[in-house]
Nucleic acid binder design. Structure first.
Lengths: 242, 242
DNA sequence: CGCCTACTCTTCGTATACGATTTCGTACTC
DNA sequence: GAGTACGAAATCGTATACGAAGAGTAGGCG
């Protein structure tokens, strides 16, 4: 299995060069090395990774399917932007699937998981002063990942992961713009943990998890008082679930 | 803008050979020409379509991302099967996203849409005697499509389409095995239409739409009294939402 | 007689090469 | 001076070719 050892040691090294390229490009996108709007030129990436254009092409198409890049025939691919409307759609979808995943996962969350989640949430709480949006967002993801990762339905779980990946493009998340929201978020996390620990029914947990995310979305929308009609419509829809 | 004006009636001829291959293979899968489990050999398909293997490969990977085919490195692709567990997961996911899509779509459903939906439902009702599962399933899809197609969130709408596509592999659907369910289904459709017409709130509509699908799933599970532990777990989860 | 091994054959994975399309720069005209 | 048309460069899309990995099969060995 002696891989060509071309600077591969951290993340990729996934046997296939396609997967290798996929992992590499994906990482650079979420790391911010390829900022939104950046053009992804096949030949350049191929040369950079030491492979041909064919695997790179396939990787790009996979990333397109995940919504991380946009593609245009005979023009090329660019890193998917943070268009407010798109952000809104993504958050709404995520609230839906993450709520369900959390509810389905709840019965399978053990005491150890709960303890870990609580620890992460406390770390978030201690992070509130001397606020660092990026770090907070990262902890936020860790927290929720613990709660939904046991979801027995792989399709739903996959959708949750995709949603988080898309949001990873803008690493700052909502909390950069609306720091106040961070405070509420920590409290809602505690509430969610209590529900799970008490064995609340799935519907209640789903509702709480969904509302938690919808509230974050609303906080965002309130600050950027909607720039489009579409935003308003979707906002109203999100509210309806409150 | 100004699409090549192709967009021909059915599916293929989409400018790019990749898209052409994608459309062609997809159609053969949903048509049943490529039955579940059928091996998809790149070279064979390429020759059949008069193109090279590269576009076909890309098409296959896209179909893989949609869950219509399964892929194994250095082995090849096969049409995704109807593994009961997989069916269960798909239905559960579909109940989630279709419920949300229907609720979000409801305020945008006009009188004309309602009339069409009602007409389709009546056609289904008249279809109950002299029962044809395939035809009934098709009408069922038409009915629901009218209700969720106005969903303003393209991501959610796309997820609904993907779910339906996966189910299209087994064209007979649940109704082949549980004809009794067809009767209830028509009644629930009427109820759903009434809710939408009365302008019920989004949560109520989402609940009704989700429950409608969950009930179909349960009917299936009751007949094939679960063959696996996983099935039971997911079934219980689905019930929790009732 | 059954199991293991070596070989071949199919099929995938990737590299290279060439044609097609778009875009950008420049010169020309009104 | 602005707009348009032409041409060159860049980039994508697809075909062909070759190497690699897995699956099936025949033969030998226990």
């Amino acid at each position: 299995m002696a891989e060509p050892a071309t600077t591969v040691d951290d993340a990729p090294a996934a046997g296939s060069k396609s997967q290798q390229a996929y992992g590499a490009v994906k990482q650079r996108i979420v790391d911010g090395a390829y900022p939104p709007g950046h053009r992804l030129v096949l030949a350049a990436i191929a040369q950079d990774l030491g492979v041909s254009v064919v695997p790179v092409r396939e990787a790009i198409r996979r990333l397109e399917a995940e919504g991380l890049v946009t593609f245009q025939r005979n023009v090329g691919a660019t890193v998917a932007g943070i268009d407010p409307t798109e952000y809104l759609y993504t958050m709404q979808t995520l609230s839906l699937v993450e709520g369900a995943a959390t509810a389905l996962s709840a019965p399978l969350v053990g005491a150890g998981d709960l303890a870990r989640a609580r620890a992460v949430n406390e770390e978030m709480r201690s992070c509130l002063q001397d606020f660092d949006p990026v770090r907070f967002t990262r902890l936020n993801q860790d927290f929720h990942a613990i709660l939904f990762e046991h979801c027995p339905n792989p399709h739903i779980l996959d959708l949750v992961h995709r949603g988080w990946n898309r949001l990873a493009s803008l690493r700052s998340s909502t909390f950069r713009f609306v720091p106040e929201r961070a405070h509420e978020s920590v409290e809602e996390h505690a509430h969610l943990l209590a529900l799970i620990e008490d064995g609340a029914d799935a519907d209640t947990i789903e509702r709480a998890a969904r509302l938690h995310r919808s509230a974050t979305l609303d906080a965002y929308l309130t600050h950027f008082s909607a720039s489009e009609a579409a935003s308003e419509a979707a906002s109203a829809a999100a509210h309806d679930h409150g």
